[in-house]
Amino acid sequence: MVNIGNIQLPDFPILLAPMEDVSDPPFRAVCKANGADLMYTEFISSEGLIRAAAKSRKKLDVFDYERPIGIQLFGSDVATMGECAAISTEAGPDLIDINYGCPVKQVACRGAGAALLRDIPKMVEMTAAVIKNTHLPVTVKTRLGWDEGSKNVEDVAERLQDIGIAALTVHGRTRVQLYKGEADWRLIAKIKDNPRIRIPIFGNGDITSPEKALEYKNRYGVDGVMVGRASIGYPWIFREIKHYVATGELLLPPTLDERVAMCRMHFDKSIEWKGPRVGIFEMRRHYAHYFRGLEGAKAWRTRLVDAETPDVVLEILQEIASSEAVPVS
């Protein structure tokens, strides 16, 4: 078992990464249905929570079927982050996660996300404020460092463990790299090998297949892996990784019926949570992923994106299920 505070996870858990405009409750529902062991909300702006901004407050929604579920916060002000930890705790998650890894300009240039990798004392102070304002386990997600010349994540890991974080996830790139190039997990392995480190260490970056997950488990010794972009439109990656790690056998890819059923579940949850207008609009970014590689996928995506009512979307999905499409060779 892997323990994060009082949360018990299976050996080598597979985590769903918090992804802005992706990891909402409808998406989390399909990932949980396929075996995700721990999930997080989209990252939530601490300043937005303090202002009671509707979008930020809506992201606090968590549901019992998602558990264990963490709320992820980001911000640049220590006191505000502490206050938001208390607000988030009231929403009833299982843990609070702090984002010290987001590389996008709009976040980092405001002194939040990966920007804290250039101010470790402030990162420590902010983390302590969050821990002080919640009874829940507090975890952190970060990167190797700001750039190639300042990879300081080993120091970060020790200092944050010393003030009480319950687990650490490290993305194997620097902030300057964004999402380019190959993730480097060697420093993640060094953290895990550090005899001072007692908390679970999870690796993130480039986990795109069951084979890679098992390879990285064996090579780098991490306690689990976090899957991000590879899960978009393909939530089956969680069950595939878990099965391969346990047995060494690859599962068959999802059938057409399974693809349609999972897309339908995602769509239904989207309508339920967001309402018809917003639910239909926000599902449009997912259709191409669900049917990628199948005959007629482009035409289906075009029709689904153009659909303006739930009934039309469901009719098209039923048509897809009846098409007997096969993967394009």
Rank of each mutant, 00 (worst) to 15 (best):
S209A: 12
P235V: 14
G221N: 12
D193Y: 11
G203T: 12
G205S: 07
G203H: 07
P195D: 07
S231L: 09
R219V: 10
E211P: 03
R229E: 11
P235L: 14
R196K: 14
R198G: 13
R196P: 03
F202C: 01
S231V: 07
G203C: 13
G205P: 04
D223N: 12
I191L: 15
P195H: 04
K217L: 03
G228R: 03
K190C: 12
K190E: 15
R196G: 12
R196N: 14
D193I: 13
G203W: 10
R219S: 12
V225L: 14
N194P: 10
N204K: 11
I188P: 08
G203Y: 10
G224A: 08
R219G: 05
K192H: 02
N204I: 04
G205K: 04
R196W: 01
L214S: 08
M226S: 00
P235N: 09
K190L: 15
D193A: 15
D206L: 01
I191R: 09
S209L: 08
G221V: 08
P210T: 11
P235C: 14
E215Q: 13
A230W: 04
I207T: 06
I232F: 05
G233C: 04
G228M: 05
D206C: 01
R186S: 15
P195C: 09
L187P: 05
R229A: 06
V225K: 11
W185D: 12
L187W: 06
N204Q: 07
G221I: 06
K217M: 14
M226W: 00
R219L: 14
V227D: 04
T208W: 09
D223G: 06
G224L: 08
R219K: 15
A189Y: 08
I191P: 11
K212G: 01
R186D: 10
